[in-house]
Every structure is written in structure tokens, then in C-alpha cells.
Design a binder for these strands. Structure first.
Lengths: 223, 223, 223, 223
DNA sequence: GATGAATGAGCGTTCATTCAT
DNA sequence: AATGAATGAACGCTCATTCAT
């Protein structure tokens, strides 16, 4: 995937000034990932990020209105990147079952290697998404942000996989529910595995999670 | 269920001073529910709660260390209450399948009537749990709180239903994963139905959610 | 006037917590007067006042919402105090002309001695009023504050003197205009005398100002 | 008055770079008027003005040191323009009384039609002057600005009318006081009429204001 | 035990300004 | 000459918390 000179495109509804358009902007993104990963989103502030990148917090405000917008940006980047990987992994494969299987693997597993899409550490980002992304849309102004299109990347992934589901079983009534249950479920089972093991099975073995959700999906769609 | 004089028991790891032990404590609980429901957990503060109940915020600190502990208390109360309802709904039913079916109904549906367990409005509490409870354990100190037993009520419910699952299919490898996926999934699908409809199916019809998860579970366990 | 144990009453629309009710509150008032006098209202901030009184600015917010409310409080105190002096100076005087004459003296002259109404330095306060009070009601939310009764003390003084005017000449059409012109005019002529001498006559001689406005009023009302 | 190709001359003490010398400068002036009128001088900032004219705030700093200088510039423009109108309205009139009468009308009434002196909306400007100009010289550095000649236009108008006053009554001791009282009084009575009606008479009727100050002046000068 | 008063620390934000282009 | 990017400093404000009563 390296050296492909492909860039994840992020729409202007997700920032005040495109962080991709300047060195400072890129620094903000890459360091926000390491900092959120380190101290958690609750304790993360623009002031701390400013110190971290040796820059004044006021500069960060040029790029993002507040830390929440930044989180939404990161999740959006993540889903655009996932979509790209899904496309890549499923082209030229005729069987929808096969395509769905490969897709489930991608959405249920945390990223293990950093292919370093430019300045973004995908491993850390993926960990943030798995444990913090839920906060990106559990807020009082979800509706307004949703209307502005802030969650389109996520919706796009769900839609893409729902379409494969319908290829396999056109009569299925709950394709979106199925896919979003898998995605959110996988995130949480991973988190439970690390922090609340009694809510899941077999500890940290993340392949079990993929196995579980794969079976779940195909049990549903079979026959 | 009214007039049964049953009380939900909450362990001392969940408060500094038992809110159930005084009029002020009960006021704190019942008003925190209405206030969190109204303005959301992010904007909720002890200062606002203090004003709301005409009391000084410092008094609230006697009962809870911070607003997060209060949220954990509320979720714990909720799960203890759910456990109580599960017991009630499944006693004297021989068939584990039947018991699981009834249980799934209870854990996937939001509460519609307030049976007014004393001073707690269960309808509002259930809405808070469905949309905010995720924040109770997505924090940097989950581990410490988990060790202190703060999430035992939730774990207890998951365990109880896992046991029923194993009654039905003793060889099943992922009973906890299955149950916690259903619970968390149902919470989120409800939330998506209200705020991010493209991530779910058929809008606000919450019976569809129960139907979906019921089918999901029994597809898994059949044969 | 000393030792009379009279207290200027200020209504609750003018503060969040009554500054008169605590030592800190009184410190806030007395030091805000010296500080505003020293550095001007524009440069005056709660942070600076906090440092000045060796206290945290957050404590000041308990008493006043913002620095503007504090200025409004000070003007209100001033006008209540002026009213008190007017009553004192005019009781038992039969002739309305005489009463008006004495009143004009009070409203056109800056205070020269501090009779020290408790913790308030009237000399400095009077200087603040003469040069800064105009900012108390030249704001975007005058209307709302006026509806809340924030300017009642000032209005009361104008009304009281207007009544004397009407005693002298019942047919006079512009009593309020006349009085408020005298008050505001005297404030500004004093200010001009110090800072923009070409807009006034004879420099700093403040008796000239009283003489001018006295003549102006009685020219108007005569015959 | 249109098409007369007369230009108000503003001295270099009032700007860093002459706003009249470039398109951007003119845009700054004309838009600052509409913006101050809209949001008030307190909330007005160069950043907002920059956005308003689609230009960077740093460009505005080329023309004016700060927002205060800009306000002083506007007031100066206003008074130069008033002087021009006074000259125009009083030439070829022999009677000083007649000249004073016409002058009082000009200085006490708000402008109602925009004769559009180039890019300046005189109606809005006049409203700004009536309600905000007081802030132009109630600052800690009046003296320095006054020495630099920033208020010469205003002083010129007061002087011109004082001269007429002395033509009528050479022995009069307070000509400047009289004129500046009329000007400032008329500004404030207009403001009171809109926002603090209890400090004036008969509401919004601005002719009453002219009538009042006319009478006031001639009562003073008669005999 | 409950309260009120006071505080320190820090957050989000904005402003005026500088620097490089 | 005009602009855009970035900055430092401060502001207004609120939060969680402590202390004294």
C-alpha cells in the first residue's frame, strides 16, 4: 500500500482550516493522535497539545473549533481510510460472501502495522477509534453535526457493507443494523477484552472476536 | 410491582456516603436523573445540580467524589434493577429458550412506564443508560473502578444471561460476547434510530431491534 | 453626616451576591473604586482586581457577573447616595427655588471630602462617575438592564428634581430633559475642563460649571 | 450637495496610512461604519471587520493602530462634515441669531438622508456618533490624543458656534460650555429617548430636542 | 452532617500584533 | 502594498475542591 501516493480526502465541514494544507496542521493531527492515545480524550486539551507541539494553543483554533471537532475529524479520517482498504481488499472478487468475509476482518480487527499514511500513525489511531470514537457522536449536538455531513465516512462504510449483505440475501430486513452491530460490537469487545474481561470471552484474543462476528453474520444470512 | 417495598441494594464502593440514607441523598439521585436527561452528561455539573436542588454543591461531594462516580452509581442502580426484573420475569419458567426470550425483551427495550421505585424515575434513567452509560466505563480509570467492583451489577446481568445461553447450548464458546453484544447493540441501535438513522433500519421502531437481536441470538444457538 | 449609621440600600438586580454582606464583598467594592480610578474602566479586569485584593478572581464572580455589572452597581450606589444627600439638603426648605438651587449644587460639583460612608471613598467614586458612568448605559444591552431596574437610582434623582422644577413652573414641558442635561452636562464639562479645555470655558474652575447650569435652569424657568 | 466633488480632509494624525488613498482603505471605512452600527463598538474588532470585507485583519493595521483610532477617525470625519454643512447653511445670512438657529438644528438632529459623500453612509455614521462618540474621548490617553490634534474637528465646530454666540452677546462668559452642552446634550437626549425614556420627555420626538436646546440657548442670550 | 464562602487551577477563546512572503 | 500564518498574552469564566462554621 505504501508509495501509492493516495490521499484521504476530508471535507471542509470537518475543519475550520484544512490541517492537511500546512506543516502545522499535519503536526496537529499526528500529535493529537499520540496525545489522545496517551492521556485519553477526557484529559486531552488544546493547551496540552499546544505545549506538546511547541506551539500556542491559539494556533490550533485556526484549524479546529474545539477538541470535539478534532475527534470527529480523526474518526472521519479513519473511516475514509477503512473504506479505501475495503475497496482495495474486495476488488476483483466475484463472490459476495468472500467479499463480506474479508470486509469483516478489516472492520473487526485493530490495525497492527503502521503503513504510515503520511504523518498519521494508523495503529494508534485505530486504538483511539476502538476506545474513544463512541464519544464522537454521543453528544447533545449529534443531530446538527450529522446534518452537516460529519459522519458521512462512517455511514458510507456501513452502506457499502450493507449492499454486500443484500447481494447475499436480498430479502434481509436489517442490513444496516447487522453491520453497525458488528462494527460497534467489535470495538467494544476489544475494549472489554482489555478492561472488562467478564463482559467478553477468552481475554485478549482478538481473532475470537472476528470469528464470533463472522459466524454471527453468516448464521443470519444462511439459507 | 408497586408497594413491594423492595429496595435496590448498592454497594459502598459506589458512593462516599449512601445517598439512600438521607433525604438529601435521595434528592441528589432523583434530580441528577432529570438534570442529566435534560442537559446531557457533558454539561452536567455538581454546581448546576446544587442549584437545581437548592443546596450547596459542597454537600453533594459528601455523597459522590465527582460526577463520574454518580454516573457509575446510576448505571449500577439500573443494572441491579434490571437483574431484579429478570429474576421476576423468569422464575417458574422451565424452558431456557423461553427464559432467554423474555430476558432479551427486557434488555433491548427502553422502559416506558415509571413504576416509581421510590424516588427514581425509571423511564428517564433508562434513556440516560441507553445514550450515556457508555461513558461510565470509557475512561482512563476503568481498570481501577472495575477492580473495586463498580461494574458488578452489569457483569451480574451478563453472567446470568450467559448461563441461560449455556443451558441451551453448553458447547457455545462466546456466551458473554453474545449477551454483551446484544445489550450494547440494542442501546446503540436505539440511539442511532433517533440520531443517526442511516446506521440502522426502519427508523424508530424499537420492536424491530428486539426482533433483530432475538433472531440473532437464536440463529446462533440453534442446532 | 458621619456616625449616622445610615446605609445605602442596593437592590438584588444589581449583584449576584450582596457585596455588603461580607468582608470580601466590601473589599471588592472599595478596591474596585481605587483600581478603576487608577487605571480606567477599559483596562480594569477582575483578574487585576483579584490580584489587588490578594484574592482569586473567581471569588469576585460570586458577587458580580462581570465588570460591567460592577460599574452599574457603583453608579447605582452613587445615585442612591446623591438622593440621600438631596433629601438631607432640602428638607425643611419651603421655597422650591431654593431647593432647586441647593440640588443643582450637589449634582454639578464633584465630591471633595470623603465622609467615608463605611468602606467607600466618595471622592474617588465621584470622579469615576463623572468620567466613566457614561459607559454604564452606553451598551448593547441597556434595554434589558433598564427593564431589570438597574438604573432606577439615577431615574429617581432625575424624577425628584423634575418635580421641583414643576413646582416652580407647572407648565414646563421638559423637566426631565432639563435635569438630565444639567447632570450629564456637568459631568462632561468637568471632564472637558481637565482634558479638553477648548470645549469648555475657564479651565478647571468647577464653580463656573455650577454657575452656568444654575443660570441655565433659572433662565429657563423664570417668568 | 451631490456631485460637488468636495472631499472631507482628514489630517495624518488620525491614521497610519490614509484610508482615502486606496480602495481597501475606503472599504475599511465604509464597512466599519455598518459593522459598528450593527454590533456596537464594544463587540467590534478588526478580526470581524477583516472577515466582513474579506480581507486579513493585518491589512487593517496598516491603516489604523487599533479600533479606537478608527473611532476617532470616524468622529473627526463626522465633525469636519458637520463644519462643512454649517458653513454651507450659514453663508450669506447676516443675522447671527438666524445663523445660530440654523446651526443648532444641524447639530441637534440626527441625519436622515444619505447624501452619500462617496463611500460613507452618513445616516449610519450619525447614529454611531450620537450613541458611541462619547467613547472616543473617554479614555486614559485623551490628553496625548488631544495634543496630537485628534479632536480638532470637534473643537473647530464648537469654536465656530461659540463665535456666533459672542456676536449675539459679546459679554457672555460661557460660549463653549453652552455649545458643547447643546451638542453632547442633544446626543444623549436622543439616546435616552430610545433607551432610557424616563430621563427625557416625550419619547422619540426628536424635534422636541431641538426645540428644547434652541430655547435654552436663546433664553441664555436674550437681553 | 450540612452548608456557605472562598479558592486555585485551568479551560476555551479572542485579541492585537508580528513575521515571512 | 497586501496578505496569510502564527503567536503570546490575557480575558472571562467554570470546575472541582477545601475550609470554617
Amino acid at each position: 500500500m505504501k508509495n501509492l501516493y493516495i490521499q484521504i480526502q476530508i471535507g471542509p465541514e470537518l475543519y475550520s482550516k484544512d490541517p492537511n494544507s500546512s506543516a502545522l496542521g499535519q503536526k496537529i493531527i499526528s500529535n493529537s493522535i499520540t496525545l489522545i492515545h496517551e492521556i485519553g480524550f477526557e484529559d486531552f486539551t488544546f493547551r496540552k497539545l499546544g505545549k506538546h507541539i511547541q506551539s500556542n494553543e491559539s494556533s490550533i483554533y485556526r484549524y479546529f473549533e474545539n477538541k470535539h471537532s478534532l475527534l470527529v475529524y480523526l474518526t472521519s479520517w479513519y473511516w475514509s481510510w477503512i473504506e479505501y482498504r475495503l475497496v482495495f481488499a474486495t476488488t476483483n472478487i466475484a463472490s459476495p460472501t468472500e467479499r463480506l468475509k474479508k470486509s469483516i476482518l478489516i472492520i473487526t480487527q485493530q490495525v497492527k502495522e503502521d503503513n504510515s499514511f503520511g504523518y498519521i500513525n494508523e495503529v494508534l489511531l485505530s486504538e483511539i477509534i476502538f476506545s474513544e470514537s463512541v464519544k464522537a457522536y454521543h453528544t447533545k449536538n449529534v443531530d446538527e453535526e450529522n446534518n452537516r455531513g460529519c459522519f458521512m465516512a462512517y455511514v458510507g462504510v456501513v452502506q457499502r457493507l450493507s449492499n454486500i449483505v443484500l447481494e447475499i440475501k436480498p430479502s434481509f430486513k436489517f442490513p444496516h443494523m447487522l453491520i453497525s452491530t458488528v462494527i460497534e460490537g467489535a470495538h467494544q469487545q476489544n475494549y472489554f477484552g482489555k478492561h472488562l474481561p467478564k463482559l467478553t470471552d477468552k481475554g485478549k484474543d482478538s481473532e475470537a472476536i472476528t470469528e464470533f462476528y463472522s459466524e454471527m453474520v453468516f448464521n443470519f444470512l444462511k439459507k
